[in-house]
Amino acid sequence: MKAAARWLAGLPAYLWSGWGAAASLLLCLALWEWAAGLYGDLILPDPRAALATLAGLFADGSAWPELLVTARRALAGFALALAAGSVLGVAAGLSMTAAMMARPVVTVLIGTPPIAWLVLALLWFGAGDGTPVFTVFVAAFPVVFVGALQGARTVDGQLAELAAAYRVPLPMRLADVYLPHVLSYLFPAWITALGISWKVVVMAELLATSDGVGAALAVSRAHLDTAATLAWILAVVGLLLAVEYLLLEPVKREVERWRGAA
């Protein structure tokens, strides 16, 4: 209740601080417009044409189903990566040996290009939901894992000692001493992982499925429809921005209020 009230109270200031972000986005639009004038409609239609196409896609009802399919796959892979990465990462962080053994494996996972995983996934799962979900999972998992591992490894020994001296029972020790610290590492990792998921899912769909935003992009490419391509890109990026700045960022601010950097 208190948190909700604080969120509402902080909302105007937060939205006001969005002017800076809006200004930089509008500057990008201006650059786009300028480049469109330079190269012509076939290479790069101007922003208004792309937005008009996007509005058309929403109006005739063809945008939402594709976006929902894509979102479902991205979120499924993201949720799996989030759960597995957080749990395994914290577990690995608790043991020095596990942490040392996990390091190179994670480096390999991060270093392997998602497109390589995609090819393997196509062989293993075929053309269905399995392929994009798996590719998203593999791409996002190591990022979450590393965040959780770092969080668990850097728990303050002095606070752990304090908890021991005050005979703090285990559930409270986890909730009050360890979790807030680990979360401060996990949260940024989750946000990064969400961005990765969103990007990778479109790539996977482009090659592996017949529906979703990726598949729609493949179609518009085949039709040499640059305006539709840009419209789909706008839709995907806009959705990611909305989720990150309207949902995750406020949650992060509330959870990390104790840092008081803002």
């Binding site: 304090l162 908890a163 005050y166 104790w258």
Partner: peptide
């Protein structure tokens, strides 16, 4: 028994009030 350490060792994510109440909560 209760301990006071060399450094304050407060939980940075809890207000002063909840830090004071830490031992009571454990009980």
């Amino acid at each position: 028994p209760a301990c006071v350490f060399q450094q304050p060792r407060l939980l940075p994510w809890k207000s002063a009030l909840h830090n004071i109440a830490f031992g009571l909560k454990a009980q």
